[in-house]
Simulated assay, not measured.
Amino acid sequence: MTSLSPAAQRKAASEALLRDRQIPINPHLPHVEDEIECQARSTEEVAWRAMALLLVAVKGEGLEQDIVEQILADYRLAPHLSPEEQDFVANLDPSEHQRIQFSWRYEAAWTLLWALGYVAELGEPTAICDVPMAVQLMQQRPPEQFIADAKLRSQGEILDATDLIYRTHWAVVDARLKGQEAPADLIPGVVMERHHALNWLVGYLDQPWDQVSTDT
């Protein structure tokens, strides 16, 4: 008997978890990239991205512009912001829609904090992340210490999470297309932000942050 490849094993494990949670699966979805195909991010790169996401999220939540600019300077984050993040941080009067969209970045940041070992368990995407804890993790450390204290998880563990969220996101999108609520108390915004962060982590299609695809 031919043994399953690691990627096929990962797909099978994800589908088993989803069945246990009574989340619909699409058996025709392909497996995600394996460890040879994917692009590994460095601890430093992931840490800077997490700090940048936390900055735009706190601004989205309503933090005063002068404090946002102080954090930007203190943490030397300007070179680490994506083009869309740069525009948002510089915008003195963002729309409510922009604020809401960027406040969701807490969930992407939380995913990266998990990847960096700061968060023990990612858990099911059925609740909003612990925003005060996420902010505190950054507040407690200057950037050098934030990077030094991080312990990036193995690529295999990150790929496991990527495969699972890919299939979970399919279920959310399928429900929306059918005019139904997301299954199993899944929160669509949390699912999408995790998918975005994890696809970036594995270098999906080698896309920069603002262009990362979350197709299902």
Rank of each mutant, 00 (worst) to 15 (best):
P6I: 07
A7E: 07
R10E: 02
K11V: 00
A12P: 03
S14Q: 04
E15K: 05
A16N: 10
L17W: 11
R19C: 13
Q22N: 15
H28E: 15
E33Y: 15
D34N: 15
E37M: 15
Q39A: 14
L55M: 05
V58M: 04
K59G: 03
G60F: 06
E61W: 08
L63C: 09
E64W: 11
I67F: 15
E69C: 03
Q70Y: 11
I71E: 03
L72G: 00
A73E: 13
L77M: 06
A78I: 02
P79N: 07
H80I: 01
S82A: 13
Q86F: 06
F88P: 06
F88D: 05
V89H: 00
N91K: 11
P94G: 07
H97G: 11
H97V: 14
I100C: 10
I100P: 03
F102S: 02
W104T: 04
R105K: 07
E107R: 02
A108Q: 03
W110F: 14
W110H: 10
W110K: 04
L112I: 09
L113I: 13
A115T: 11
L116P: 01
G117Q: 13
E121T: 13
E121V: 12
G123N: 10
E124Q: 13
P125R: 03
P125M: 08
T126N: 10
T126G: 10
A127I: 06
I128Y: 09
C129V: 06
D130Q: 08
D130T: 06
V131L: 05
Q139N: 14
R141P: 02
P143A: 11
P143R: 09
E144V: 15
F146V: 09
F146H: 08
A148E: 15
D149T: 14
A150T: 06
A150D: 01
L152Q: 07
S154R: 11
S154K: 11
S154V: 11
S154W: 12
Q155W: 09
D160P: 09
D160G: 10
L164H: 01
I165G: 01
Y166T: 04
Y166Q: 02
R167Q: 03
R167H: 07
R167N: 01
H169R: 08
H169Q: 08
D174I: 04
A175K: 00
K178T: 08
E181N: 15
A182E: 00
P183G: 12
P188R: 08
P188K: 07
V190T: 05
V191M: 01
E193I: 02
R194F: 03
R194N: 00
R194C: 01
L198D: 03
L198P: 00
N199C: 12
N199W: 04
L201N: 00
L201D: 05
V202A: 00
G203E: 03
Y204D: 04
Y204L: 06
L205M: 09
D206Y: 06
P208N: 04
V212K: 02
D215I: 11
